[in-house]
Amino acid sequence: MSDRSTFWPTPPDWTTARIEMPGVTVTASQGDRGVFLLSGPGKAISELAQAHPGTLLEIAPDRALLVTKPDTALSEGWNASGLAISDLSDAHVRIDIRGPGAPALLALGSPSLALDPKPRAAALAFAGVTLLVEPLPDGARLHVDHPQAAHLWHWLLAATHTAKDQP
C-alpha cells in the first residue's frame, strides 16, 4: 500500500477560505452558532424555535434544524414536551454561495435546485453529498457535515474555475 496524502488535497482553513470568481463569491464559517436537531410534533418545534431566535430549517414533517446563538444550552435527549434534541453545533460547516452566478452553480450541484431554487424542505443532494440548503436573497447557504465539507469545497473550486486552470 502507498501513502495517498498528496493525492487528496488538504482541507482549507475554514476561517479564511474564499472563492472569488466573476459573478460568484463563496465563503465559509464553522463553530460560531448553536445548532440543534429537533424531532417531534411540529407545534413543539415551532415553540422552541420562537424561544431561540435564529433560523429554522425544515427537513421533514417532524424534523428541523435550529441555528441560533452560540453557547445556547439545550439539554439533549427526549423530553416531556415530546421533543428529541441533539446538539450538532460542531457538526457542520456552513458554505455561502452568493452572486448573480449563484443560481447556475447551485443548479450544477443539484438537479433539484434547477427545478426549484428555493426548496421548501432543506435536505437535498448536492455534488453527491446530502446537506441542508438555506436560500439567501442572492444565493444559498449550504449546511454540510464537516467530514464532507472538504469534498464540497474542492468541488466548488473545480466548478468555478475553467478546465484549463485545473491539474
Partner: peptide, 24 residues
C-alpha cells in the same frame, strides 16, 4: 400527505415537492 403526478417528470415527495429522481 399525498401528491399526484401524471406523465414523466421529477418525483414529487409529499413533503419536499418535486425533486430529482436520484434522491430516492
Amino acid at each position: 400527505m399525498t401528491r399526484d403526478q401524471t406523465g414523466p417528470g421529477p418525483m414529487t415527495c409529499p413533503f419536499c415537492g418535486p425533486r430529482d429522481a436520484s434522491e430516492f
